[in-house]
């Protein structure tokens, strides 16, 4: 990057503040105490084990949880300072698609199979802006072009099943940014995309972020993407935040044993390792072993677990460099002192 490095201004009230978020289905509580801030104009990434509650967290911000889900009392989600965890259906609808846009993990589940993509983008526009049918249609073509759907004039008339997986994802992006949101939640936005389009889409999201001074909450499992695009990253495991920090120091020196396992599990492009040479590193066990367990959810899979880990849920330590980690074991003495004096 060129030019002087400008320190972003940190406004007093973050754009989005999630605190002690708990989401349950009956006795099952897949999100059990998650908190983070998203500042204006920044990209915050969430990574974590499959099933750790990333999508549910995103859906709760959008007011789109399944009807069987309950947000527990004491949970808080504030957007521009206003509590939005218990909005009426009408207010929630006004917020989403307007001030908050979302790109969903599985595009097919959110696109209407019997409506052309052009009509779907136009409808998203007309829900929040007073546009004529014709103007909305023209704007839809522009938006499809913006997300690089080839031949948008022709493609507006296509139905979702006529598009490839990657094109459907780009249509979702067009719908999400149609009304110029303040916050874009992107749940695995590039999972269905190949590397060239992935780079273009992330570049596009980042350009929109700068041009519309929009913040981005990016859920992804691609650590290369996090390193390249995120300002800060939250690591989740079994419904909780286990670590948070800036990508470079976090990847260089992960402090939570789960983050460490995640980093060694990644097949690296630069080494010529092949399946015929042997299996990939895995973190032994699975997240499903959590059920009914007290203490740290990662303990059954953790090489460092001690008695205390199996008895009490580790508190989140705040370290000097903005790092947060929910593990007492691997924090050094120097860190402890820093945490104490905070």
């Amino acid at each position: 990057m060129n030019g002087p490095i400008v320190q972003p201004r940190v406004p007093a009230v973050p754009l989005l503040a999630v605190e002690d978020l708990r989401i349950g289905f009956g006795a099952h509580q897949p999100v059990s105490g998650v908190g983070f801030d998203v500042r204006e104009g920044e990209t915050l990434a969430i990574v974590g084990e499959s099933g750790s509650g990333k999508s549910l967290t995103a859906l709760s911000i959008m007011g789109l949880l399944p009807s069987s889900a309950r947000i527990a009392p004491g949970s808080s989600i504030r957007f521009e300072g206003r509590e939005i965890s218990a909005l009426s259906v009408k207010d929630a609808r006004a917020l989403r698609g307007g001030s908050i846009g979302m790109i969903f993990q599985e595009p097919m589940t959110c696109l209407n199979p019997v409506m052309t993509i052009g009509d779907q983008v136009a409808e998203a526009l007309r829900q929040h802006q007073p546009l004529t049918r014709k103007a909305a249609k023209a704007r839809a073509v522009e938006l499809l072009d913006l997300v690089r759907i080839p031949d948008p004039h022709r493609r507006v008339a296509d139905y979702p099943h006529q598009l490839s997986g990657g094109m459907r994802q780009r249509v979702m992006i067009a719908i999400a940014v149609a009304c110029g949101p303040r916050l874009l939640i992107a749940d695995e936005p590039t999972t269905a995309l190949d590397v060239t389009i992935q780079a273009q889409v992330l570049d596009l999201i980042d350009r929109l972020r700068r041009e519309l001074s929009m913040a981005v909450l990016l859920i992804t499992h691609d650590l290369g993407v996090v390193a390249q695009w995120a300002d800060r990253v939250v690591v989740m495991y079994a419904g909780r935040k286990v670590e948070q920090g800036e990508p470079d120091p976090l990847f260089a020196r992960p402090l939570h044993p789960y983050t460490q396992g995640l980093l060694t599990a990644s097949p690296r492009l630069d080494d010529n390792f092949h399946y015929s040479d042997g299996p990939l590193n895995e973190i032994p066990g699975s997240i499903s072993s959590v059920a009914g367990q007290v203490g740290c959810a990662f303990a059954p899979r953790c090489a460092h677990a001690c008695t205390a880990c199996r008895e009490t849920i580790p508190v989140l330590h705040h370290l000097t460099d903005g790092r947060q980690v929910a593990c007492p074991v691997l924090i050094t003495e120097e860190h402890r002192v820093a945490a104490f004096h905070r």
């Binding site: 990574v47 974590g48 084990e49 499959s50 993990q105 695995e188 999972t191 499992h221 650590l223 396992g261 995640l262 980093l263 599990a265 990644s266 097949p267 299996p279 990939l280 590193n281 895995e282 973190i283």
Partner: peptide, 8 residues
């Protein structure tokens, strides 16, 4: 669609 440890 899988995180890295489940990918592995």
């Amino acid at each position: 669609a899988l995180d890295l440890s489940i990918q592995a």
